[in-house]
Design a protein around this nucleic acid. Structure first.
Length: 552
RNA sequence: GCCCUUGUAGUUCAAUGGAUAGAACUCCGGACUUCUAAGCCGGCUAUGUAGGUUCGAUUCCUACCGAGGGCACCA
């Protein structure tokens, strides 16, 4: 429809002697300004030698009547607003009501895309940053799936490296149980502190680090195997609650030897400096980074080269997207610059998406100092907060509902804002289940679902009528597929989140005004509209990775 | 010092270069013997500063001020 209007406008402009390469037809923010609008008249008024309003009127006259458009009018300084024909809206409502794939598109059809996210490290806490990466990564994966792409979810975990050595050292020192995942986080904090303050401990930890790579010490091997397994098992429980199912797991213990080999095979690209092997990023306007330490161990940089190679070996992707916090953006650029030389074919298909960080009002969280809110602790708190209400709800399983509501609350808080910005974590706000929140969307969905169910038991069929005067809700629903497309093209889930809030809000207002099951003939249409709302919210929430319970 | 991100109501966030800058939380005030009150209706308050580009700037450019992050053997 948009393209059709743009084409018609270009033709109309030509008739007044203006060769416009392109015109922009947009969605007015206010529904009162039509379903589509253009400011072309304002843009080209000068060129046409006319006042904007006169040009706009001239264009409207030239456009005449368009198929699917009920009304075209000039407004404001010279905007041209298009109002869709009721039949067009009715057709899309019918799709919304009846089609399971409502909202999906085929823009990325046939594309194979790997999305890597969450990336927690065994032996460390699963903190809020991982929750953030998980929420964003899952939503992006689903946006791409809804665009027709074949998506594989990947999780890359650091099971070797200094943090592991610190944790193992802490386990030995504190004598904690390595089978207990939460104790490992504590052990890590202990080891990390000692590493900085106690030279003796630093030496021991460095030794353990080498032993982990070489598997040379029985006791360390055993602690390592037990702790690694406990961590990974613990993470799986969280993924289950969060609704993520990974297709591929990569580990630093696997990427390390590959990365090491890649760097060593390219002495023309990497050079030695102070005993380490580095890549001079200055040649690309960046900075130098170490790929192999002076002790001969691969750093994260080298491992990432190995990872890229592994990824393309396990699955021939068209694009691989890595989602990390913004603090790694600079690092990633250097790795990518090096990768363009070492693995040029793969590097062109790698994309990095960075998001802001979760901050405490007091400042940055740090797992090294233990100043963190773990993802698990936060989820637990949220579930507790949701329990009282869930117990009074209509849900068959109150504890399952409490969990769904908790996941919605935290994910919504993350996905409602543009991904580049930091999120200031406010406990009270996160625990709030009202207003601009995930549960608000869930509630609107459950409500709509309940009405449709009731209509079914009454034997009332839902049917979209040929609308005479479309209301805001009907016009809003029409936009859903476009919003999904737009959010997918930008890899920005928040565009969908804010839209769903509008839909839920419009539905709640409408619901408060209208009696839906009023026994009149229009009840058929109102139930159908309610079903369309339910489907839109359900599909939209699915894309965001937020559960949509049917009863609350 | 250099690089990246970022400054919008008291607070947390929106606004593909457009129309009266939207929500929510907080606070105040309402409605309901009707399908779910995690809901609805009404009220208060905002674009860091100074220039520039443009018919039009929260959005683009420049400078300044503030915040966060990164910049050699951590991930």
């Amino acid at each position: 429809m948009r393209e059709k209007l743009e084409q018609a406008l270009i033709v109309a402009l030509q008739s007044v002697g203006i060769a416009a390469g392109s015109v922009v037809v947009e969605r007015p923010a206010e529904l009162g300004n039509g379903d589509y609008a253009t400011s072309a008249a304002l843009q080209y008024a000068k060129q046409a030698g006319m006042v904007p309003r006169a040009l706009a009127e001239k264009l409207v006259e030239t456009l005449g009547t368009l198929d699917g458009v009920a009304k075209i009018e000039v407004a404001g300084a010279g905007f041209i607003n298009f109002y869709l024909a009721p039949g067009v809206l009715a057709a899309s409502l019918e799709q919304a009501r009846s089609e399971d794939m409502w909202g999906a598109n085929t823009n990325q059809s046939g594309k194979k895309i790997m999305v890597e996210y969450t990336d927690p490290n065994p032996f460390k806490e699963f903190h809020i940053g991982h929750l953030m990466s998980n929420a964003i990564g899952e939503a992006i994966s689903r946006l791409l799936q809804c665009s027709g792409a074949e998506v594989k979810r990947a999780n890359y975990q650091g099971d070797v490296g200094p943090h592991v050595a610190k944790s193992i050292w802490g386990v030995m020192k504190l004598g904690v149980d390595p089978k207990d995942a939460s104790e490992l986080g504590r052990a890590y904090a202990e080891g990390s502190k000692a590493y900085e303050s106690d030279p003796g401990a630093k030496e021991e930890i460095d030794a353990i680090n080498a032993q982990v790579y070489e598997r040379s010490d029985e006791k360390v091997n055993k602690l390592y195997a037990t702790g690694r397994e406990a961590s990974l098992k613990h993470f799986e429980e969280l993924y289950k609650i969060l609704g993520t199912k990974f297709d591929h797991y990569f580990f630093e213990s696997e990427t390390a030897p590959k990365g090491l080999a890649l760097v060593k095979a390219h002495p023309e690209i990497f050079e030695e400096s102070d005993g380490a092997v580095v890549y001079k990023g200055e040649q690309d306007g960046l900075h130098t980074r170490v790929f192999i330490t002076s002790k001969g161990l691969p750093t994260y940089e080298a491992k990432d080269l190995g990872l890229a190679q592994m990824k393309s070996e396990v699955w021939g992707f068209d694009t691989s997207i890595t989602i990390t916090a913004h603090e790694q953006a600079g690092y990633f650029e250097v790795v990518l610059a090096a990768m363009r030389k070492v693995l040029p074919d793969i590097a062109t298909n790698i994309r990095h998406v960075s998001h802001g960080m979760m901050r405490l009002p007091s400042g940055k969280m740090s797992s090294r100092t233990g100043d963190v809110i773990t993802g698990e602790a936060l989820l637990r708190e949220l579930i507790e907060a949701a329990k009282a209400r869930a117990a009074e709800s209509r849900a068959d399983d109150a504890s399952a509902l409490a969990r769904d509501v908790a996941v919605a609350a935290i994910k919504y808080q993350i996905l409602k804002q543009a991904s580049g910005k930091d999120i200031v974590f406010d406990r009270e706000r996160a625990l709030s289940l009202e207003g601009d929140s995930g549960p608000y969307l869930q509630y609107a969905h459950a409500r709509a679902h309940a009405v449709v169910e009731r209509a079914r038991t009454q034997g009332l069929t839902d049917m979209i009528y040929h609308i005479t005067a479309p209301n805001d809700l009907e016009r809003l629903l029409y936009r859903f597929p476009e919003i999904v497309e737009y959010a997918a093209s930008k890899l920005e889930p928040h565009l969908l989140t804010t839209y769903l809030l509008e839909v839920a809000s419009a539905f709640n207002s409408w619901y408060a005004r209208e009696q839906i099951l009023d026994g009149s003939t229009s009840a058929h249409h109102k139930v159908a509209l309610t079903a369309a709302v339910a489907k839109t919210l359900k599909n939209g929430l699915w894309i965001l990775g937020i559960p949509a319970p049917e009863r609350m």
